[in-house]
Amino acid sequence: MKLARELGVSSKAVSKWMSGESLPRPAMMLSLAKVLRVDPLYLQHGEMAQAGELRLYKALTRGSFPLIDWSDIENFRNIDQTDFVRFRRYASGSILDTDEGYWLIVEDDSMTSPVGLCVPQASMILVETKREPTNGDLVIAQIPAAKKATFKKLVIDEGTNHRYLKSLNSSYGVVEIDDSCKFLGVVVESRLSFVTPDPADVTYI
């Protein structure tokens, strides 16, 4: 058995651990956790330990939100619950309606405008996932034909009730959307740091 070989114990010992007939000694528990790439507390107490760790982590980081990749947006809830120490977290100056949100880094200049509201490339934006989008909101949206989510302004024509996703940069086009467009959150804050590391970084792990 591969696990037995890696730990330097007999296959019989591993079988007893698997069946619950016996438990590894503390030192062996640490070695086992390292091989399996899990927390030792999880091996001893299962999901109760993980739930407790999550509650503690959320309490320590209240008022801050993780910086995630655009590719993680749709699976964010699952990742945040099971791999919550994976992300760096940043404090927010906004008061959110819920505790569910995340930061993204703006990847292009489509929301860069020479006048008025402007969210330049490389800015960090805070997305509140449970806020209902309204006319004029900046949103993260997923269009079925697109490979990834997009950051745009939601515009609703009150006369026709037609809806559009509009860039703040006039060199980009306007896209009309229908009910197949999925809104993934409303952007409630933006900031651009000029120092490294960001002084608002509140990573605890």
Rank of each mutant, 00 (worst) to 15 (best):
T112K: 13
P144I: 07
L117E: 09
K58G: 00
K147E: 12
L56Q: 12
G52R: 11
W70Q: 10
K58L: 10
I95T: 14
E158F: 10
K153W: 00
L117Y: 07
T112C: 06
G136F: 08
D97P: 00
S113L: 03
L154V: 04
A59P: 00
L154C: 06
N161W: 08
P144Q: 11
S170T: 13
S64L: 04
F87R: 06
L165R: 05
D108K: 09
F84E: 02
Y164P: 01
T61S: 14
G159K: 09
D69N: 15
A91G: 10
G101H: 02
A51M: 11
N75D: 13
P120R: 11
I95D: 06
E74A: 14
N169I: 04
P144G: 09
R163L: 00
V115C: 02
H162R: 15
Y57C: 04
I68F: 06
V139Q: 01
D72S: 12
P144M: 08
H162Q: 13
D137L: 05
Y102H: 11
L138Y: 11
D99T: 13
G116T: 10
S170V: 09
L117V: 11
Q142E: 02
L96T: 10
L67V: 06
P120M: 09
Y57N: 07
E132C: 12
M124Y: 12
H162V: 01
S92W: 04
G159P: 00
S71I: 12
W103V: 01
I143G: 04
L154N: 04
E100M: 06
S92G: 05
E74K: 15
Q50V: 13
A91H: 05
P144T: 10
Y164A: 06
S94R: 12
N161F: 11
M124A: 14
K153I: 02
R86Q: 11
L104Q: 04
K130W: 03
V127C: 05
D108M: 06
I105S: 12
L154W: 03
D109K: 12
V119M: 08
V106R: 05
T98R: 03
I73Q: 05
G116V: 08
D109N: 15
P120N: 07
S171C: 05
S170H: 13
T160A: 09
E74M: 12
I156H: 05
T112L: 12
Q50I: 12
Y57D: 05
F151D: 00
F65R: 03
V155S: 09
D157A: 07
L165C: 06
F87W: 12
K152H: 03
Y164E: 01
A145D: 08
A59Q: 10
T98L: 02
D108F: 07
K153L: 04
S71M: 10
V115R: 12
E100A: 11
E53G: 14
G52Y: 06
R88I: 01
I140K: 02
W103L: 03
T134H: 13
E74V: 12
E53C: 07
